[in-house]
């Protein structure tokens, strides 16, 4: 019973860690990098598209 509880604890911890890592990766993937314009790629020199 104790072993079952330990395994379950580890599985839940792994799921939580996975969730936190995924969220933080998503956050960094979708944040604008310095030097990159909001509408253009990093190689565009931050030039904005005509609005």
């Amino acid at each position: 019973m104790l072993i079952q509880s330990i395994i379950v604890g580890l599985i839940i911890a792994a799921a939580v860690v996975y969730g936190v890592v995924t969220l933080s990766r998503k956050r960094s993937a979708f944040s604008t990098k310095p030097g990159c314009g909001s509408d253009c790629g990093c190689n565009s020199g931050g030039k904005k598209l005509p609005s």
């Binding site: 790629g41 190689n43 005509p50």
Partner: peptide, 18 residues
Amino acid sequence: ATSLDEQIARDVITGKQA
């Protein structure tokens, strides 16, 4: 190069794409 796709295509062709 008025839209983003066109800018990226130019960057790839001119070798400016990281």
